[in-house]
């Protein structure tokens, strides 16, 4: 038990260092406007915008090649933020690219059915799946962005998307009801 805890903490520490190092070592000197757009995108990396990831979409927006309403995970909030940044009109989300989920989804692997083929690991853009060949795989829920890219490669169809578990701490105070409509204008 102690050994397991130690190993895992050691690994966590090590990965932290590697990630930190990678962030500095591989820092891409980028176009600041692309960076700013990219910072507003949800980083789900799902490709529903038809670009292979959030950054390529950010580049396309910056070059004026794509409208700002193609990112379903970001939803209306991202469109408003992008419109504010780029000083353009707020658009309705383009439904053709997919549906926005109010409560984000995460992948969950049915561990009894998993055959350990590693195909989902290769598909996951953020390395959120843990496992090795012929062994049961599992999703690190905290790191999963809900991109659904691991679903098609699974040969036994054992990955499901479920809404993130909401706790009482995630509850949001609502705005006063109907304020917009019933405020008396003077």
């Amino acid at each position: 038990m102690i050994v397991a805890i130690l190993t895992i903490s050691l690994m966590a520490g090590l990965f932290g260092l590697i990630l930190g190092y990678a962030a500095i070592r591989f820092k891409v000197e980028g176009n600041p406007i692309v960076d700013q757009i990219d910072a507003l995108l949800p980083q789900t990396q799902c490709g529903q915008c038809t670009y292979p990831g959030c950054r390529p979409y950010a580049e396309a927006i910056a070059n004026g090649e794509a409208p700002i309403n193609q990112c379903p995970p970001g939803g209306q909030a991202t469109i408003v933020a992008l419109a504010g940044l780029l000083d353009v009109e707020v658009l309705e989300p383009n439904q053709e690219h997919g549906e926005h989920h109010d409560i984000p989804l995460v992948a969950i692997i049915d561990e009894a059915t998993c055959i350990g083929c590693t195909l989902c690991i290769q598909a996951c853009p953020v390395d959120a799946i843990l496992g090795s060949a012929k062994h049961m795989h599992t999703v690190i829920a905290d790191e999963c962005t809900g991109c659904e890219l691991c679903l098609p490669p699974c040969p036994v169809d054992c990955i499901d998307m479920v809404p993130i578990k909401q706790s009482i701490d995630d509850w949001k105070w609502p705005l006063p009801t109907l304020s917009e409509e019933i405020v008396h204008e003077h």
């Binding site: 962030a23 980083q43 959030c54 953020v126």
Partner: peptide, 10 residues
């Protein structure tokens, strides 16, 4: 999303 970006780039 910042974490996801970092992991994606890594």
């Amino acid at each position: 999303s910042d974490r996801a970006r970092l992991r994606f780039e890594f």
